[in-house]
């Protein structure tokens, strides 16, 4: 029941966000229609970071309780996090090319996102490297914790690294009209719901997967 409600809420909110972005919100004066990518870009970045926070929390919860479900949630969240971070890394350059006149700048936020992406690809590598379920769960929980602790240090070091160079766009210089803000908030909600929907679905798939494994082992024995 709850799952059904979540599905519908996700569907409707994503639909609403799409409508607002493409039909309702006015074009940005200088950048033009390309700026519309901003609403999905920021929302995807938020989901990406949020997903990795969940990986960290699930890692801690797994090491404390040793309950398999925390591993399932952590693993699913990491996969979705990598997916959304990839979306950020793809939409970013598409937006950057016409506005900054470069596909990529070594801006602190961009670079941190890239490093984050690499750290969680490594997390997925850890997961596939251990065939034994117990080791896989334990080691990926540990790596999820270590990786998350690294992120703030990455952020600070990259920010100081870049301060010597001109910053192309700074966060404060982005005044938004109320329509834009509404659209951004709606797409944030839509993407968060989408994340929750994907997470619960992925966990359900992983559960079935584990059951099949167990049945297979039982039959073969």
């Amino acid at each position: 029941m709850a799952k059904k409600a979540l599905t519908w809420l996700t569907y409707l909110s994503v639909l609403a966000a799409t409508y607002l972005v493409f039909m309702w919100v006015p074009n940005e004066k200088v950048m033009g229609p390309v700026q519309k990518i901003f609403y999905f870009h920021v929302a995807a970045a938020w989901v990406g970071f949020f997903a990795f926070l969940i990986v960290f929390l699930c890692g801690v919860a797994y090491l404390v309780t040793r309950a398999e479900k925390w591993d399932l949630y952590g693993a699913s969240s990491a996969e979705i996090g990598v997916l959304f971070t990839t979306i950020v890394l793809i939409t970013g350059p598409i937006w950057a090319r016409p506005t900054w006149n470069a596909w990529w700048t070594w801006d602190p936020r961009l670079t941190t996102t890239l490093v984050l992406w690499f750290i969680y690809l490594a997390y997925l590598m850890v997961r596939t490297s251990f065939p034994e379920p117990e080791k896989r769960m334990r080691f990926s929980a540990i790596f999820g914790i270590i990786g998350f602790i690294d992120v703030p240090i990455v952020w600070f070091s990259i920010r100081w690294w870049r301060t010597i160079h001109p910053v192309v766009v700074d966060g404060s210089g982005f005044a938004m009209s109320s329509k834009m803000l509404t659209t951004l908030l709606v797409s944030l909600v839509a993407f968060t719901l989408l994340y929750l929907y994907l997470l619960t679905t992925r966990v359900a798939v992983a559960r079935i997967d584990n059951q099949i494994q167990r049945i297979k082992e039982a039959v073969l024995r």
């Binding site: 750290i119 790596f143 070091s157």
Partner: peptide, 17 residues
């Protein structure tokens, strides 16, 4: 194979500094 792939991303802040 695994060690460099999981070690280097975490080392980035240290390397920069």
């Amino acid at each position: 194979l695994l060690l460099p792939v999981i070690l280097f991303p975490l080392l980035i802040p240290l390397l920069i500094a």
